[in-house]
Simulated scan of single mutants.
Amino acid sequence: MPYQSSLAADSFINTTIVITGGGSGIGRCTAHELASLGATVVLLGRSEDKLISTVEEIKEDGGSASYYCLDIRDEEAVSATLDAMLIEHPRVHGLVNMAGGQFRAPLSAISQKGFERVVQTNLLGGFLMAKNLFNKHFEAHGGNIVNITADNKNGMPGMGHSGAARAGVENLTKTAAWEWGPHGVRVNTVAPGWVASSGLDTYPDDMKQALRNLKHAVPLGRIASEAEISATVCFLLSRGANFITGQTLFVDGGASMGSAPALYPLKHSDKPTSETWNGFHRSAIPRVLQ
């Protein structure tokens, strides 16, 4: 069975979309969906094995994909990679800044080096990608940027470095949308809540039960599939979103409504109150949720 997108077939025919962090998780899913809709996808990341695997999957499914291996925190590498990419793909239509990473720790235990590395990955890298692609291409041709943050409306206890960086991404998105809008560039942000992605399996054993209980803090009674995040990213990249810029779309089942659980505890049956949409034919349930 091919990818089951909620967008019209061939929505991205004759377009090229760049995806950082495209070798795994939501980035991999988004790459598959865009390719299934006719886009040529260019995947960027540090792990060449993951990039190769995803490119091979997409080609097996009949799509068009290639990759470049780099560290997006290195501006010289970003600049050189984009120069090479623009020779191979003279017209690029979109950028998805999906790459990110963090580790669990209270603020009091985060070292300066650890804080800086997370901020560099989640904020600086996306800025370097967007700035360089704008200067080299989007300023003259227009384009579309979708940044990925997280549900950080009420802070991110246990991951304060990531929350600070991702709040920066949201603000940077608004500035870029204002400054680059006159050049035909739209810039938006998607803020996922909890997602059944492979990243859940990277957390330590003492968090496993908490991960399984995440659904109890979501009004819709479940966590998202990767495809539900990808669908929102693809919508923002699509022509149907041509008058949307500078916005953050929360895809979190209502979990970001803050203190509501403490004032009005949610009572769920074993059956979720909404159906999961998962059009990604290659998705796998994280082990921690099985």
Rank of each mutant, 00 (worst) to 15 (best):
2 P>M: 04
4 Q>V: 09
5 S>Q: 06
7 L>R: 09
10 D>T: 01
10 D>Q: 06
12 F>Q: 00
12 F>M: 00
16 T>C: 08
17 I>P: 15
19 I>H: 01
26 I>D: 11
27 G>S: 06
28 R>G: 09
31 A>M: 00
33 E>G: 01
38 G>P: 10
40 T>A: 10
56 E>T: 02
63 G>S: 05
68 Y>P: 03
71 D>F: 14
76 E>D: 06
77 A>N: 06
81 T>N: 11
87 I>P: 11
88 E>V: 13
95 L>G: 01
97 N>K: 09
105 A>I: 00
105 A>K: 04
106 P>M: 06
108 S>P: 05
110 I>E: 11
112 Q>E: 14
114 G>R: 05
116 E>Y: 07
119 V>G: 05
129 M>Y: 14
134 F>C: 03
144 N>I: 00
147 N>Y: 14
149 T>K: 01
157 P>K: 07
158 G>S: 11
171 N>K: 08
177 A>D: 02
186 R>M: 07
187 V>R: 05
187 V>D: 05
193 G>L: 02
194 W>G: 15
200 L>N: 08
200 L>G: 07
206 D>E: 02
207 M>G: 10
210 A>P: 00
226 E>S: 10
227 A>D: 08
229 I>G: 09
229 I>A: 08
234 C>A: 11
238 S>F: 14
239 R>A: 15
239 R>M: 13
244 I>W: 09
244 I>E: 06
245 T>V: 10
252 D>K: 12
254 G>A: 00
257 M>S: 12
259 S>K: 02
267 K>T: 12
270 D>K: 07
278 N>P: 09
284 A>W: 02
286 P>F: 15
287 R>W: 08
287 R>H: 13
